[in-house]
């Protein structure tokens, strides 16, 4: 049974990559989105100090993240969803989507970090912590947005609904990330930042647990 679960999970995960690879316009769109946003930020502010760098960076990551994840349920038709429903356990499906979106978001945040560093400079003083923050951001955004996009995908106005549902919910995560990122940029002195990391991980654990428990109810149509 265990190997069966792992097999289903890996097949679904591979399926996500294959879909993404076949519809290359979607991923290219997101990549372009990130790069154009980086340039908009750079063009609209003459000089980017470390403080502004921090705020703009997280805004870019937030918007890119929402746009990248929102399609994860919308892009597949209702009949195909029904097909999956008969084949696999819903918790395996959502975990495959979450893992896939985490990998996607990690790639996107790294891309955003790279391109942003090229145009606006790189004020990060503690790269290790900053990369950890990027990973935690990808994980947190992926869990929350994947779950909420599964709700939003059921409605007709899914893009608006996605923004309404996710912005307030993600705010505690985003504020903690901003704080941790400020620490890694040495904008604030905080020796107790490990507590923030634990908080963030705790929020992620709660979100994952909720997604697992609640997803079967969203799924069932």
């Amino acid at each position: 049974m265990n190997t069966n679960f792992a097999n289903q999970f890996l097949t679904l995960l591979r399926k996500e990559f294959v879909i993404e690879f076949r519809q290359r316009y979607a991923i290219s769109g997101i990549v372009l989105y990130v790069i154009s946003m980086v340039f908009v930020v750079y063009a609209s502010s003459i000089k980017v100090g470390p403080k502004e760098w921090n705020v703009f960076f997280w805004l870019i990551v937030l918007f890119a993240g929402i746009n990248a994840v929102v399609k994860s349920f919308v892009q597949e038709s209702g009949t195909r969803q029904l097909y999956y429903y008969q084949l696999v356990d819903p918790s395996i499906l959502i975990s495959a989507k979450i893992v896939y979106n985490t990998i996607l978001l990690m790639a996107l945040t790294s891309l955003a970090y790279g391109s942003y560093s090229v145009v606006a400079g790189n004020p990060v003083k503690d790269p290790g912590l900053f990369l950890l923050v990027l990973f935690l951001a990808s994980l947190g955004f992926s869990i929350a947005f994947t779950f909420l996009s599964s709700i939003a995908a059921k409605a007709s106005n899914s893009a608006t609904l996605m923004a309404i549902l996710s912005f307030p919910v993600i705010l505690p995560v985003l504020l903690t990330l901003l704080r941790l990122s400020s620490v890694s940029l040495r904008l604030i002195q905080d020796t107790a930042y490990r507590k923030d990391i634990i908080n963030l991980v705790a929020i992620d654990v709660i979100l994952v647990a909720l997604a697992f428990v609640l997803f079967p109810f969203i799924w069932r149509d």
Partner: peptide
């Protein structure tokens, strides 16, 4: 009603 119920549980835990 079903999706709102799901979201309500999610909202309460946030």
């Amino acid at each position: 009603a079903r999706l709102a119920a799901v979201y309500n549980i999610f909202a309460f835990s946030s």
